[in-house]
Amino acid sequence: MRITVDAKHWKVLPDLRELFAHRDLFLTLAIRDLKVRYAQTVLGLAWAVVQPLATLIIMSLIFGRAVQVETGNVPYPLFAIVGISAWSYFAFVLKESGGSIIGAQEIVRKIYFPRLIIPLSKAAVGLMDLLVALLMMIALFVWYGVSPSAHLIFAPLYLVLIIVVALGTGIWISALSIRFRDLQHVVPFMIQFGLFITPIAYPASKITASVPHWVQVMYFLNPMAGVVEGWRWSILGLGDPGGLCILSLVSGAFLFVTSFIYFRSMERVVADLV
């Protein structure tokens, strides 16, 4: 193996081969986070269930019972858990991957490895929560005796899209927060705000039916809007994954690709900045 570092030559895209060579580190960091996460907590692993369950109950009470959001013949809790599963993963990656480089500054200052491993390993930890939410979803299907939609074969595609959008956003934030620590304070706000402007608790048709076209365009520039709508369409058969949802896919793809490029540019200076 030969390593050459030249001040004049710098690759714009991450070196995938090098990334793959560090897969063991990726694995170890993810295992570490999983182990540490529930160490010395009373409920331990049960927390992975309690959190989405509490969100589901509150949402069902407020939007299902009190506000009575129209969800066709799908029971509201089932409608909600589909959105919650996507959103809680997105929120997790935003929070954990977003703050991961700052959180790992001790290591970053002392050891070299592709820095992308850090936010990626955090995002992998979130898959655990996603899995729990999916199991809850299956349980609700059984409970209500409902069968999933015929579009179910598209569900894996949308699952990948959820991960892609979450990663793109998380990697952007992790790189930006190296220079702008303020982002640490903005992320909780983004998560809170995003919950309202993404069709999690309500169908996107609520928006398209009530606001002018340019507001709809703005709404679907949020990549999660179209992806969640499509995810729900693939599982429950509700809504329309075409139309403006395509806009979300484009903005999501843009976010994903640019995140790697920006991250790479920050990788160059990260050890001098953190």
Partner: peptide, 12 residues
């Protein structure tokens, strides 16, 4: 390789 040089190069 923790930090990037401003000038020059090295090979290992």
């Amino acid at each position: 390789r923790i930090t990037v040089p401003t000038e020059g190069r090295f090979t290992i």
